[in-house]
Design a protein around this nucleic acid. Structure first.
Ligand SMILES: [Mn+2]
Ligand SMILES: [Mn+2]
Ligand SMILES: [Zn+2]
Ligand SMILES: [Zn+2]
Lengths: 148, 148
DNA sequence: TTGACAATGAGACTCATTCTCATTTATACT
DNA sequence: AGTATAAATGAGAATGAGTCTCATTGTCAA
């Protein structure tokens, strides 16, 4: 995904291809992994105002271009919205890293069933769900969390 | 669970039965549902200092008497620790209520499997997981979330 | 009862996130 | 192009949940 593709994808979602929006997407495509807004700001504080970063994150999330979720230490994490649908996260409390997790279809299907059931039982429209795992990586010298 | 039982249960966990701890547990037994620390403080600000409330919540969680979890709006919710083990939550975004959810054993078993797999794959000790559903109750006049 | 030590309360502090508003940039229309 | 209109940005103030400090108070074993 190069700059002009990013600009086009913004346009196609009906949202202006402004400098911070393009830049944020370029960064996210570059790292291809979840990152917290704070981490992102720390490495790019010359490029964005913090307020702009949060606003742009919001814009892109509303436009369904990125996904956000909140880790237990109250940071917002973002990543490019996966084309192949829903997935979940493993959060390493030692190194404060988030790893994308894939579930098998059976598991996702049972979650889907559950959503239907609960929706009826409580007369609530279920809009989303989250499944997150919390762990601690073994080594303190170097962290294996990012390895496959 | 009356006051003397609460005091005894505190002692049995090796933690002093101080006034705020006993009071908090009485309140939790009384409502018998998850509540956020902020909500709890708003209805009881004469009875606790806010700092004490958070500290006591921590003490009781460490002593395994209550459970805590964080909602997407970053509030800490607490409830008496369920004797029959793990369960999950449905959070109503309209009325900011949390409902306890039971899963069937099959579902919990597949979560357990998943934890084992991931633990090996990423060389991480999985310490916990959370599964939460987010919904919106239908009526704005009155909310059906608390009904069974 | 008393002394050692644990717990509390008031409020200062932190820090991620949100808000405000003046300035800049994009877009639309002559 | 030039101007009007609207959208987006940036700097920093404000917010608010949660944490920390430390002087005071309460607990409990001896
Ligand atoms: Mn992800
Ligand atoms: Mn619960
Ligand atoms: Zn790690
Ligand atoms: Zn509701």
């Amino acid at each position: 995904m190069d700059r002009s593709q990013v600009r086009m994808s913004l346009k196609s979602k009906g949202i202006a291809a402004t400098k911070p929006r393009v830049l944020l997407l370029e960064i996210l495509w570059g790292i291809n992994a979840p990152i917290s807004v704070q981490q992102l700001y720390q490495s790019n504080s010359e490029k964005f105002a913090l307020s702009t970063l949060y606003r742009v994150v919001n814009d892109l999330a509303t436009a369904d271009i990125i996904e956000t979720f909140t880790s237990p230490d109250q940071n917002i994490w973002i990543e490019i919205k996966a084309e192949d649908g829903h997935h979940h996260h493993l959060y390493c409390e030692s190194c404060e890293t988030v790893i994308d997790i894939e579930m098998d279809e059976e598991f996702e299907a049972s979650i889907s069933d559950l959503r239907d059931q609960l929706s009826k039982k409580y007369n609530i429209t279920i809009v989303d769900h989250s499944f997150e795992l919390y762990g601690k990586c073994s080594g303190n010298v170097h962290c294996a969390c990012n390895l496959d």
